[in-house]
Design a protein around this nucleic acid. Sequence first.
RNA 1: GGGCUAUUAGCUCAGUUGGUUAGAGCGCUUCCUUGACAUGGAAGAGGUCAGUGGUCCGAAUCCACUAUAGCCCACCA
Length: 889
Amino acid sequence: MMDKRYDAKAAEAKWYQTWEKNGFFHDDPDGREPYSVVIPPPNVTGILHMGHALNQTIQDILVRWRRMQGRNTLWLPGTDHAGIATQNVVEKALKKEGKRRQDLGREKFLERVWEWKRQYGGTIVHQQRMLGNSTDWQRERFTFDEGCSKAVAKVFTQLYDEGLVYKGNYIVNWCPRCGTALANDEVEHEENHGHLWYVRYPVVGSEKGAAGEPYKDYIMVATTRPETLPGDTAVAVNPKDERYAHLVGKTVILPLTGREIPVISDDYVEKEFGTGIVKITPAHDPNDFLVGKRHGLAEINIMTDDGHMNELAGAKYAGMDRFKCREALVADLEAEGYLDHIEDYDNQVGHCYRCHEVVESRLSKQWFVKMKPLAEPAIAAVRSGEVRFVPERWSKIYFNWMENIQDWCISRQLWWGHRIPAYYFGDGEVVVAETPELALEKAKAIDPNVMAADLQQDPDVLDTWFSSWLWPFSTLGWPEKTADLDYYYPTTDLVTAQDIIFFWVARMMMAGIHFMGKPPFRNIVIHGIVRDAQGRKMSKSLGNSLDPLELIDAYSADALRFSIALITSLDCDSKVSKEKFEIGRNFCTKIWNAARFMEMQSENAAALPAGEPYGNLTSDEKHILWACDKACRKVNEILESYRVQDGALAVYDFFWTEICDWYVEYVKDSPNKSVSLAILRDVFWKALRLLHPYMPFVTEEVAHQLGYLGEGETIMRSEFPRGYTDDEKAAWGLSQETYDFVNAKRAAVTAIRALRAEYKVPPSAFVKVTVATDDPKAETEAESLKKAMRAESVAFVPAGSDLAMPSKITDFGTVYLSLEGLVDKAAESKRIAGELAKLAGFIKSSEAKLANENFVAHAPEAVVAEARRKLAENKEKVAQLEKLAKLFA
RNA sequence: GGGCUAUUAGCUCAGUUGGUUAGAGCGCUUCCUUGACAUGGAAGAGGUCAGUGGUCCGAAUCCACUAUAGCCCACCA
């Protein structure tokens, strides 16, 4: 006996264990068509959030569906070592002990990180199991495991040998808190309410003025960053700016320092902005850096790597925090009469995407990847359609970025990450090799006397994304030639949110094509971001996050998954609130109760072999089989185009409306119960399998409870329903016509129920019903109509008959509710008048349409025919209603 | 500054190549507890599809402009 209530927690724990233990998530390469997906690896420091839940639910739906279709399926899980994020977490822990990473030293610190990973790194991996992910845990990978690390070293070396990796002294984004360089896209720009300081730079040779105005002749410079002033090596004007043409070539005095700097002209300067004169600080601004290169200016670095001023900023400011220095320096400028005035000014300021510290532009030696040569074939692969974005519009954004791609700064001044395989020796010689041994070989080729101990490995590590961009093939064994790599690469689908198209998707495209010769996936499926009910991004600081684990606890994983699928649109972001997950929970309950009904009825179900013709079927039986066939085809078709939401709707409607609301109600009073139940069993089993990708646990549990599956079997490897064959449909006498006939019958039932409600007939009361119709089939439905309408009797009279009783006109015929003296003539007359008015409107519009020659000539035949039919039908309805109206007048 | 997207019922959203009288869930109204299920059932109310103009026999759907909202990219100090 099934329990009255479904115990989701017990079922979910039990089935996940069973699936994993029996290896149901695992396939080995074979002769079948593969379907492979790699999971976007979450940070090893991460905890499961709604974004993961959305992303992974979509993937698991696709994966389970394909697996049930018989494809050899791989969904590869894993985590990302997340350089900065993880290092920050461990450093924070150290801080509590009053230590810094420098106190431990590199090796000890890395031991601590690995220790941390062993202890806490499994959190998210455990949480993913709660979702029901059918990921192949036997193939779980980590971006910092041995295999991935080999791949990283190999890739770096190869790119270096090809001249695509180079080291250069460039201005980079620098996070003073993390103490490392950041790539451009690791910087988040935020609106900042700041100021524009107007500072006077005296022209050399001008006379000293009165107090408060030290020099008579000066030029005025506007800046948002006064603290960088000690690093200025020029001021610049636009070459076309006539106001300042006379100044170019002259020299001005840098306030507070007394240093003399030239006035130069450069197109970069906007005449309209500020005063039209810019201070140039090549070591602390990316634009100024380029201007400096063009004009051969000195680069003066005035800051330390932790955001303090150094001695080059001047003795007074050395050691000062950069923002403290700004205040101090502005105060000094004012005191000395250099500050003209201050304006409020809003601009965008870059922040570290990890710790949110204000990013500093800073000159330093870093490693870069030349991206243009890698980007070109990656652009071509999408242009040619070899790789497809779903929805397609994301390709535009991809092209836009790829066509304006900048070189990628890949070195990070961290300890946690893949160490750069570059080795220095002798007098600035460098070799790059996959291992220290190979490096030594290369070094010996340059200088035979070099010993292993002479080689100094580059202290920096690589950007985390430098391992993630290899994920689709490094996880399959590359650079080894493995069977997995051969079979599962390229992967089929990549499912991810829009926010990592640049970080990750675009770079995987480049690496895949460059190292494997083929793009890493065929379809890139981009879904929206989960937002709160107000449309805000979910974040810890706002406290508006929903915790998927809490939702699973409250409603079950199936409920979470189904609700997410139902509210997800690939085209836009989804707003969610806790109540939305009740939909899934309620659906779960509905499935459970429908299953209980079947169990209770099971003794009535004769053992009819599935697939055999059932003999003479009633119209309701044909109807459910036809609806089931439609649902199966529809769901397959929908999932083929990744419309996970539409699939959920289709199966929800089929299960709830068709099976539960109508067919189960029919079965209760069916004249030949054993056949009706056998059909229900068949249809129910198909419905369970259609639902399984969305709600894996409850479907598995019910499938076993109802005996569809035996010990050791699983729904996740049973066949995904494709609908009935033409032979079956013919044998059972299914047709669109029968289907429509039953829909009409339902309309008649609904009409009587509405009349009962209007006339307040108690639900317990039996009524007399008369149906006016000429359809000879109608009479065969008398029994089922009686039950559904709760009628004492159903009589049939010819169409066009009119009785002085409340009635509604339906596709089935006109249904009359016999009330024997209870008829409210006035109310009925009013209702009829209302209906007539409505019909008059319809008739008018369809007459106008049919009178239009162009409509008849251009519209598809079916549409015109339908319009004609509808018009005739409405006219008939009007005639009938007018007769009735007289009776109630 | 450049690019993208959205605007449909009180709320959240569907609406597949333009084609009958625009749908769902939640919420709301009325009624219904010995019935598989009140986490349920039945019947309802509720929309000039943001606005204006255009193309077309026909527009929620295609085009243009306007309004509003949001996102992404970008070096205006």
